[in-house]
Amino acid sequence: MEIPTETQPEVESLNKLMKKTLISVVLAGVAFALYQNFSLMPGYEGLNVGLSNYIIESGLKDTGSLNLITAVLYDYRAFDSLGESTVIFGAVSGIVLILSRKMLPVSSKGLSFIVKRTLGIMTPFIALFGLYVITHGHLTPGGGFQGGVILAAISIIFSIVYGSAFDYRRYSPQTKTALETGGALTFLGLGLAGIFMEGAFLHNLGFLTAETGTLISAGSIPYINIGVGFKVGAGLAIIFYSMIQKTFEEDF
């Protein structure tokens, strides 16, 4: 049987051409869609008029939050923050599905005695700083996301320095999953409370506001901060924990 050796490269090149054409068409379509989306955005009107001026002038009066970025993130655009939290939840679910093979990871002995003692002194202060960044998100720079990542760093320190079995004993994956789900449920519950009390999803709860500048003021923003913080911290800790299962076996 004769093999048509001449036509094979032509089919290959034709396939390649088809692929390139398809990719170009898809890219052009995406570019056109993005351009249409951009053209829908309102133009820049300067600092003293428009939306940014509105937020700067009446953000404190509307939300009671001294940090205007937190006011935008968790009051004006709280629905977007809910979407970001859902994205992190999807990433954590995917990584755990792909990477986690068994419940108990391979343990390691950890680093030397000096490092263990020194981090034993410093870790409570790191935890305190993370909690400070979370709970003062509406007063000082920071917020739920940043403080949550600082809390996740504690879990990373435990895994590397004290061995992953220590991290498993202290904060087991069940605890982390419960914390993450609790954070997400806090966020959603505050949104539903906004429907029932104020009439809109994730509306700021007015009866929780207090004197501006105190710790529990600014409506539901501190509670959303706490929920997002624990959710992000537990989620990133789960990601790191499921990635180190077969590594760091040697004792350095």
């Binding site: 680093l111 030397s112 000096i114 490092v115 020194t118 981090l119 002194i121 410093m122 202060f125 040697e250 004792d251 350095f252």
Partner: peptide, 20 residues
Amino acid sequence: IFFLFSNPMATHAIARASYK
């Protein structure tokens, strides 16, 4: 004070790992 604790500790960890 944090620097005074953390920098020698990190250096110790790096030196020990590179020795091992």
